[in-house]
Design a protein around this nucleic acid. Structure first.
Lengths: 338, 338
DNA sequence: TTGTAAGCGTTATCAA
DNA sequence: TTGATAACGCTTACAA
């Protein structure tokens, strides 16, 4: 049923090593025999066994991708970018989902290690460091996406400049004349959360505004976090006139709450998000946001992983961390027209 | 560097087969030795080579997942469902993206075959049949998700009942008093598109309404298709008072166009979608739709794949195709309150 | 309870 | 230009 290189050898009356060479187009083999063998292989429905090959060559042509959940539009687009360049280089993706649960993070690392992936790309995990530690001593290159960590021998990162993006968002609101600008934070203990908060504070201070702690409220990166945040903000004696949300999901939840509460956006409250997920342009009002080059982030991460793989041992070309800028996309929710 | 079963054997002063047995918790090995070997394995940082094991046992504990694009919220949730049950059964996912390009579909099949995946799950492809053909003769079980095809020995499907869902959606609009109900179709040549159109027509006829061909307009399953569709519908002499869209993405585009064109929803036009993507409840007005049990679809597909794998050869338990019902979720866009 | 040996499907090293 | 043969890391009869 399953046809191997030996079956072909038998049928062709040659040795199995000749078949192996012919199939990998070795210059050692006579064109004539090559052709014959290739035809035979096709006819017999031969498919090379990647596992067996990996065993001997020491590479699996496989990249492990760890995400918290693929059901996050941001993550999905990043993975799309990874896949596209992996595909171009004949690499395959193994997907592992962590759900942000420590057990599953560990399990994911173990599995990927066992599958002997040539590299690992970790997207927006809270514990990128975990991977670096566990995998680095294995010698598996690790690329952290949107999660900086100490730079190790094998661990690199590609990310968007969160601080700068947050500043840009905040400056946009400042330029529109807002003085009481709130911020809904992201999930606690997440580097991007910290950085965006940081950028927000920086922009305020540079504008000579003393940040009001009451205007910085917790969130979780999901819609319900945004909803809760608006309730909290609206119960303040001194309400904000604008809010910069950790991400678009948060902003979308906040937008919905605003609708329910009769808070006019951008009239009563200008809103800016972060990420530019596909739906940002379909909300009502459409969402002003900082666009992350999601697909490109994925591409860069994949390219970096490939570079690290080929560099492996030979330590040739230098690989450096990548930081991409986010871009302000102005839509209705910040009410530029006001 | 890379420690193998033999290294452990040497360190433990036993043969490598003893190590193999100990690590797989064989009852043949004395508890004492087991413990010793396991400790050693941990200390030495041993990680079993899945490829090597697969070579001998004939299984890779891997499921291939083919999607057109992972950057589609519907697909992403389905994959999430697949991953979750695969994980529970110690299976790993290999992700292949086809972009709906024939070349890549072929390439995907070849790759997955080479990687010796134990089963393949294909999500919403136009050409599910292709996979059945190519893989079935290989003996790899194929599960088609939302894409029925001829039932083969190894090819099964799990899907949502599109006809029924479309009927439900249309009946909902009929019950609200609408008589001129339009339909924006999905991508041409896609089974779900046909089925949903079919259900829509069925519902109309049963209500004694002769379907007006002018009210059935083309779409593509994406927002811009919905936008174009509304322009087309609104240019009619006799406009519809309601529209059933192929899916939520289409409806969302249509909603945006409506906003731009000053068409009130649901006042001038009631809108119903299909899928219930996460954002359906965040649009404005929020979207009435037919909810597909996405996560469950994924789970079922994975379970079916696992069943097919274990049945393999032994032809034990019967496996039957799965059809899940969609559920009407009433929100604002159909204007129930009117 | 453990060890020996064969074999899974490849590639790679020597010889011929 | 081709063929033997070993090796990759593992499981699994078959012996002991």
């Amino acid at each position: 049923m399953k046809v191997s290189i030996k079956d072909i050898a038998r049928a062709a009356g040659v040795s199995h090593s000749t078949v192996s060479r012919a199939l990998s187009d070795s210059p050692l083999i006579k064109e004539e025999t090559k052709a014959r063998i290739r035809r035979l292989a096709r006819e017999m429905g031969y498919s090379p066994d990647a596992g067996a090959r990996g065993l001997v060559v020491g590479r699996t042509q496989t990249i492990g991708v760890v995400v918290t959940t693929i059901a996050d539009p941001f993550v999905a687009e990043v993975v799309q970018g990874i896949e596209s360049t992996a595909y171009e280089h004949a690499y395959t993706l193994i997907l592992a989902t962590s759900n942000d649960e420590p057990d599953r993070e560990i399990a994911a690392v173990e599995t990927l290690r066992s599958k002997r992936v040539d590299a690992v790309i970790v997207t927006s995990s809270r514990v990128g460091a975990l991977y670096s530690d566990l995998l680095e001593r294995t010698g598996v290159p690790v690329v952290l996406l949107n999660n900086h960590a100490e730079r190790g021998t094998y661990s690199y990162s590609v990310r968007v400049d969160d601080v700068h993006g947050a500043r840009t968002a905040t400056e946009h609101l400042l330029a529109l004349g807002h003085r009481r600008i709130a911020h809904v934070m992201g999930p606690a203990g997440h580097t991007p959360s910290d950085d965006r908060l940081h950028g927000y504070l920086q922009a305020l201070r540079e504008a000579g505004i003393d940040p009001d702690p009451a205007l910085v409220v917790p969130g979780n990166g999901r819609p319900n976090g945004g909803e809760r945040a608006l309730h909290q903000l609206w119960s303040l004696a001194q309400r904000p006139s604008a809010v910069f949300c950790y991400n678009d999901m948060t902003a979308i939840g906040l937008l919905r709450a605003a609708r329910e509460m009769g808070v006019a956006v951008p009239g009563d409250l200008a809103v800016v998000g972060f990420d530019d997920i596909p739906f940002a342009s379909y909300t009502s009002p459409s969402l002003t946001t900082i666009a992350q080059p999601k697909f490109e982030l994925g591409q860069r991460a994949a390219r970096m992983a490939l570079a690290l793989i080929s560099r492996h041992g030979t330590d040739g070309e230098e690989v450096t961390n990548v930081v991409l800028p986010g871009q302000l996309v102005i839509r209705e929710s910040s009410g530029v027209s006001r």
